[in-house]
Design a protein around this nucleic acid. Structure first.
Length: 684
RNA sequence: GGGACCGUAGCUCAACGGUUAGAGCAGGGGACUCAUAAUCCCUUGGUUGCAGGUUCGAAUCCUGCCGGUCCUACCA
């Protein structure tokens, strides 16, 4: 077999936040694939970097009174630490904010220019005169032009789902300064994709680089109509690279981020005396990108378009995975399921997460669910109970004798393991780790009964059985070693421990084909600790935001005692000052929910019938379906905006609005008056 | 509304159109005491979502329905 030359990337994590267990799905998945390729004897490098540019970093730097460089340096260190602790082993971990990246951006840009793909257009954008910056959609809030819901972001309304541009917002407010933004027109540079349609259609549909569902998705949603031009520039100020032939303009972060793959490779090349062109401009090299489904279109349309135009290798494959859910739900900070890598490490062995993810990952882009009970069962039963147990129960009997010089009869167990090797390898190669784990555990399930029937502990009692005892242990330990080799991409530590135990390091997949003979056996020490349910609970507890824990009843309230996070206010700054006259325009009333019904066709809505006393009964649709069950609502008092203009909705007329706090989705908290309030009373 | 995928034991998942639909975990019974309350043996558990169709033969292929997930659009 000729060794392949493979360059693998995982998506570049943004330098504005910590690594969490959702990110880790991707990095673990990718690391497993890379380790597998290396074990196969292929030349395989794993390239990644921090993604550093963009508005968010710039804003944060301002808020914290630091430079962007300080923030991204800090972030890079933290990310690299997290990855290292999870045994994610990059060949090189760079940063998009490096000279190599700037240089490559220049070159690729020049190619795009030369191909005539770059055009200029004026774009009207909201500008914050106080902060002196153009505002990305998420930094503008205002009233939805469609449904009049207040406090909506600049791109779409999470009350009504309408999409619009920030300029459409009524009474827009900059979330940076609170100032009223003004519309300013600025020149933007666009890359035309339409001229690349034929190439992109061909590449996405026939190259085999994409999962079929992805190819279908692109065909249906993008390639079926005219491809829109891609806005790749942002006017100053912007943290990024200035565009050489358009001073005062910077490349949009998504332009230079994927180029960071190449730049980081360039850095690796310098450190390792390699040529960049061997890796990015050589048909022999396979490029594999691992990404999440949220960034599909950057990697399957823009990126190949850029590579093609600039004369670089196209990806051989883009491996796209789904999102992580925990217990079947989106990760949630308040539920403590938004677990940071560093928090996980305080409580659990990273090997467990690697194995658990491996056991759930398939080649599709389905979401992956982390079920905490299943996590405990799987890790304890499979890894500790089956695999490690093989060594744990036999190693000490073989310490004196070492392994036999000849491999004894084992009823074909080792040979069966050899045979399964090809199928396991194919599963790893195809990204079907779940299948690989299944086959490996089937092998493990056959190994323990062998030990049981051979009864080494009985043999050990009579010195006359020494030879037989050595044989039994030789079989058991070789079966263990075979499993450790097959699991090595997932559990590199276990492979290392196995190598130490049997005094022969695991370096190649092919080692699984021949039994290890005649080596010494070291003293056995535990290779993994069982997971305790309490560890998980503690981890979840630590992941919950420090907030209103039940105050001790007797202690007087002081401002600092509750330790409430400043995050909600930061996320949604105060609106502009309003006068008492403004306020009295809004008629808030106490109302009783007298009926609550599902609206089957609606995803978010419940239909509430509320009474303000007497005959004053209203129908109100409220986007609280994910947070409340209808039966729990009937009878309770709420606060409604009673004089809101009625709104015709698909499901009926909504005659008001129920007041609630929270981020939306399942995080919605209805307001209630204290007891004593009566339906119909106004809130002053 | 459009699209993709899925529905198999309590749970997680297997099963080239071909014996009696199988594993692991969980449950029940027993055994062992080398091993981290680990392990081994036996065992309960299924109208393969429902209804049709194609076929000598369907979990598998086709159609419809029901239910779920994701994407996309719309609606407040």
């Amino acid at each position: 077999m000729t060794p392949r030359r493979i360059l693998v990337t995982a998506a570049l994590p943004y330098a504005n936040g910590p690594i969490h267990i959702g990110h880790l799905v991707e990095y673990i998945q990718t690391d497993i694939w890379v380790r597998f390729q290396k074990l196969q004897g292929h030349r395989c490098i794993f390239i990644c970097a921090d993604d550093t540019h963009g508005t968010a970093i710039m804003i944060r730097a301002r808020q914290e009174g630091r430079t962007e460089e300080e923030i991204i340096a800090e972030s890079k260190t933290a990310h690299e630490n997290d990855f290292r602790h999870f045994d994610i082993e990059f060949s090189h971990y760079g940063s998009t904010n490096c000279p190599e990246n700037k240089e490559l951006c220049d070159k690729i840009w020049a190619s795009l220019r030369q191909a005539g793909l770059v055009i200029e257009e004026d774009v009207s954008q909201l500008f914050d005169p106080q902060a002196g910056v153009f505002l990305a959609d998420r930094f503008v809030k205002g009233t939805c032009p469609n449904c009049k819901a207040p406090n909506q972001y600049g791109d779409n309304c999470d009350k009504c789902g309408a999409t619009y541009t920030p300029a459409d917002l009524i009474d827009p407010v900059s979330t940076l300064s609170g100032a009223t933004p003004e519309i300013r027109s600025a020149k933007h540079l666009f890359v035309q994709l339409e001229p690349l349609r034929e190439f992109l259609t061909h590449w996405t549909q026939t190259s085999g680089a994409l999962q079929t569902e992805v190819a279908n998705y692109l065909k249906g949603h993008f390639l079926g109509k005219e491809l829109r031009n891609w806005d790749v520039s942002r006017p100053a100020p912007y943290f990024g690279f200035e565009i050489p032939d358009a001073p005062g303009n910077y490349w949009y972060v998504w332009f230079d981020a994927p180029i960071g793959y190449v730049a980081s490779t360039a850095q690796w090349c310098k450190l390792n005396n390699e040529k960049l062109d061997d890796w990015w401009r050589n048909g022999e090299t396979e490029i594999h990108h691992f990404i999440g489904k949220d960034i599909t279109y950057f990697h399957t349309l823009f990126w190949p378009g850029m590579l093609k135009t600039a004369g670089y290798n196209l990806p051989k494959q883009v491996h796209i995975h789904g999102f992580l859910t925990v217990g079947g739900e989106k990760m949630s900070k308040s539920k403590g399921t938004f677990v940071k890598a560093a928090t996980y490490l305080n409580h659990l062995d990273p090997a467990f997460l690697r194995y658990y993810y491996a056991s759930k990952l398939g080649p599709r882009l389905d979401d992956l669910d982390l079920n905490l009970e299943e996590f405990v069962d799987k890790v304890n039963a499979d890894l500790v109970g089956k695999v490690v147990n093989l060594a744990s129960r036999t190693a000490k009997f073989a310490q004196a004798s070492g392994l036999s010089a000849q491999y004894p009869d084992d009823q074909g167990l080792f040979a069966a393991g050899v045979e399964a090797g090809a199928e396991i390898a194919a599963a790893y190669e195809g990204g079907d780790y779940a299948k690989a784990m299944r086959i490996i555990m089937e092998l493990a399930d056959r190994a323990n009964p062998y030990v049981e029937h051979a009864q080494p502990w009985v043999l050990n009692k009579d010195p006359n059985n020494a030879v037989r005892l050595q044989e039994v242990c030789t079989v058991a330990l070789n079966l263990f070693r075979q499993l450790a080799i097959y699991l090595a991409p997932v559990l590199p530590k276990l492979a290392k421990q196995c190598g130490e135990l049997l005094n022969d390091p695991i370096t190649s997949w092919n080692q699984a084909k021949q039994p290890l003979l005649g080596t010494k056996v070291s003293t056995f020490t535990h290779m993994m600790q069982r997971v305790k349910k309490e560890d998980i609970e503690k981890m979840i507890e630590e992941s919950k935001p420090a907030e209103t824990t039940e105050p001790a009843a007797a202690t007087p309230a002081t401002g600092s005692q509750w330790n409430d996070s400043g995050e909600p206010l930061q996320k949604e700054p105060l609106a502009e000052t309003c006068t008492i006259d403004d306020f009295v325009k809004v008629d808030l009333r106490v109302a009783r929910i007298i009926a609550a019904d599902e609206v089957p066709e609606a995803r978010k809505l419940l239909k509430l019938t509320v009474s303000m006393g007497g005959d004053a009964v209203r129908t109100v649709f409220a986007g609280i379906k994910a947070a409340y069950k209808p039966e729990d609502l009937v009878g309770r008092l709420v606060i409604i905006v009673a004089n809101l203009q009625p709104r015709q909705m698909k499901f009926g007329l909504s005659e008001g609005m129920v007041a609630a706090a929270g981020e939306g989705g399942a995080e919605v908290y209805l307001l209630s008056p204290d007891s004593g309030a009566k339906p119909g009373q106004r809130v002053h």
